[in-house]
Write a protein that binds this DNA or RNA. Structure first.
Lengths: 238, 238
DNA sequence: TCTTGTAATTGATACAAATCAAAAATATGG
DNA sequence: CCATATTTTTGATTTGTATCAATTACAAGA
């Protein structure tokens, strides 16, 4: 296993405001440190957890990039999300005490392991943490609602525009450029997430490129005209 | 407003095992009674809550049938789920303190109003309730994952088969027939949920009917050959 | 550096579902 | 009970994306 355990401290983590609520006092932070006992490294292509694995912990991504996916018995795969630093994965395991999807690292990654029993225990003590856990789960429900809208109602161009805008927005809020992305996933993985075939993803990238909306060189994407993308995604709001 | 408030008791509710965890002691049940202070009636076509409404409470459906849906600015609607007695709706509102979808009654309905502040308070006191709330949210995340699989990877027949099987399974677990359904929603609403147009839903119903798999008379559907439906949904498992 | 495998692009064609259109069945309200 | 509106069904045609196929670009390892 490509795993390594390191003792670390939430109180000094620069992602704290992303993965855990602000407004925590010294006592709360100390307790959090105790919860996040260990970190775990996952190599590119490695599995953080797989469908059917016993559920024990939530994971806060410190570095790296993940995809989560489910699959049918006849081998069709659906990517259900892409997750980056500061985001929490593993919520799918709570209901059955076993994970209901696979979490795969798309680049070398490191996560903070948060045993769920400890999270629940501390939640009972600190209402701010309790509320934060509820919000994280609710946010995931709302996100999936909008993916359903994407898959059920939108055309290929709209889907890809929405995907790019969402990605750069999340990267931007982490201090990265809002116009440049290096994609961590293949065309096939983007297609799986968006309910499209890889050829359609590639063609749509090319179309955007021809129209001068983006510049694409394999995994590198520069957004030249964000307004055009927004217009494709939501013509009414522009 | 078509609303009526009635004082009621969880402790004597026959849906208790569906909407709240089993294994509660007398003290817990009494406290639950105090939380679910009121019930609320919603007439057919009425809105339990709408997108943008302030979030205050979760709702446990006592009787009736709901759809939840989101919509784009240009008027496209996506049904995100159909909910029946014993199911909880409103989780979408936690993250922003405002609801992020509409909940519409598809028939006259009655819900138990559970102020979320009280739910959180009592959760801190009773780990069993806390765990149950977490499971309900996780279940919704897992459900949406499988809808994403449906929308992203499956053909019309597979989608409709999955829809019918899921519906009768849920009805059956509530003591209803596992072979007969009276649909509470229109072809258009089914289509919206499944990412199909109403004509495609109608045609697929007709096709199943011609093949002797189901008997359809408008809203009434009888499942004649459940195995055939399962085979369409998941050829490997049969 | 060369080799090999993987990922991405592009073209031609096929197909499932959407769209357009009209009729039939059913529900609703006076 | 009738008139009207809504929902459902069915047919003809179009269309967006999938599929099949071939080439090119790139990455990783020897």
């Amino acid at each position: 296993m490509n795993q390594e355990t390191i003792k670390v401290a939430c109180s000094s983590c620069n992602l704290r405001e992303l993965c855990m609520p602000v407004g925590f006092g010294a006592e709360e932070l100390q307790k959090l440190d105790d919860i996040v006992a260990v970190r775990k490294k996952v190599k590119q292509g490695g599995l953080l957890f797989g469908n059917g694995d016993p559920f024990t912990s939530l994971y806060a991504i410190r570095t790296g990039f993940f995809k989560t996916c489910v699959s049918t018995e006849d081998g069709r795969e659906q990517v259900t999300g892409f997750q980056m630093a500061g985001e929490i994965i593993g919520l799918d395991g709570i209901v059955t005490d076993h994970h209901n999807c696979n979490a795969v690292a798309l680049e070398d990654a490191e996560v903070c392991v948060m045993p769920f029993a400890s999270v629940e225990e501390l939640s009972r003590e600190f209402p701010a943490l309790q509320r934060h856990v509820h919000k994280i789960m609710s946010r995931e429900i709302v996100r999936e609602n909008s993916v359903m809208m994407l898959l059920g109602n939108m055309r290929a161009e709209e889907r890809l525009a929405a995907f790019l805008l969402n990605l750069v927005q999340r990267l931007h809020s982490r201090g990265f450029s809002q116009s440049e992305v290096v994609l961590r996933m293949t065309r096939e993985e983007i297609g799986s997430y968006l309910g499209l075939k890889l050829e359609t993803v590639s063609r749509t990238f090319s179309k955007f490129s021809e129209e001068g909306i983006i510049d694409v060189k394999q995994r590198y994407v520069q957004i030249l005209n964000p307004e055009a993308l927004k217009k494709i995604f939501n013509p009414q709001a522009c």
